[in-house]
Amino acid sequence: MSYSTLALCFLAVAATAGAALPLLARTRGPSMAALVISAAGLVLLTAVFDSAMIAAELFHYAPTRLLGLHVGLAPIEDFAYSLAAVLLLPSIWVVLLGRRSRRSGRER
């Protein structure tokens, strides 16, 4: 399995869950501005720190399994995990906060 196939599967699961969780919990999802700002920050951090770790030879990738596109030394496939985190984690946060506020409202 190539890194891009694995990354696409991971992104698909995160995007589906990230969209479905707020709907199932009947809460409003995270704002688009927050997602864009988070994605920009995580993509920048991924480019910098993945490049540093690859330059330090902490890990390497099989070149035959990569698409060949890089940002710095980081292969483009590495950015899928940052984007998946941006898609999934805020939705989990919103759902958990909604549950918590509903629960505290009932206790009063």
Rank of each mutant, 00 (worst) to 15 (best):
T64D: 15
D78K: 00
G72N: 10
V86H: 02
L73E: 13
P63V: 07
L69Y: 08
L58R: 14
A74S: 13
V94S: 02
L96T: 05
Y81L: 13
L73F: 07
S91M: 05
A85M: 11
A74I: 07
R65M: 14
A74L: 10
L87G: 05
A80D: 04
L67S: 15
F59M: 06
H60V: 10
V71P: 02
P90T: 03
S82I: 02
S82M: 01
Y61S: 03
I76V: 15
G72I: 09
L83S: 04
P63N: 11
V86L: 07
P90C: 02
W93L: 05
L83C: 11
H70R: 15
A74W: 05
A74H: 03
L58H: 14
L83Y: 09
L96M: 12
S82L: 07
L66E: 12
Y61Q: 05
V94G: 00
L97Y: 07
D78Q: 09
G68R: 10
I76C: 11
E77S: 08
L97C: 08
L66M: 14
L88Y: 06
L58Q: 13
S91V: 04
P75K: 02
R65Q: 15
P75V: 11
L69K: 06
L67C: 07
D78P: 03
L58T: 06
Y61H: 12
G72S: 11
P75W: 09
W93N: 01
V95D: 02
E77H: 08
E77G: 05
L69C: 10
A84M: 08
E77P: 10
F79A: 06
A74P: 01
V71Q: 02
A84H: 04
L89S: 02
P90I: 03
D78G: 01
G72Q: 10
V71N: 00
I76K: 01
P75E: 07
V86K: 05
L67M: 14
S82F: 01
L58V: 12
V71S: 02
I76S: 12
F59Y: 15
A80M: 05
A74M: 11
P75A: 10
L97R: 14
P90H: 04
T64S: 15
L67R: 10
E77C: 10
S91E: 03
H60E: 14
E77R: 08
F79Q: 08
P90L: 04
F79M: 09
I92N: 00
G68W: 11
L97H: 09
P75C: 11
A74N: 05
H60W: 14
Y61L: 08
L88C: 04
F59E: 01
V94K: 11
P63D: 14
I92A: 09
S82D: 02
L97G: 00
V95F: 00
P90V: 04
R65T: 07
Y61D: 05
L69D: 05
A62V: 13
L69F: 13
L96K: 03
L96D: 01
E77N: 08
S91I: 02
L96A: 13
S91K: 05
S82V: 02
I76F: 12
V95Y: 00
P75D: 09
P75Q: 07
S91R: 06
L69S: 06
V86E: 06
V71G: 03
A84E: 00
V71I: 15
Y61T: 09
I92E: 00
V95C: 10
L69E: 09
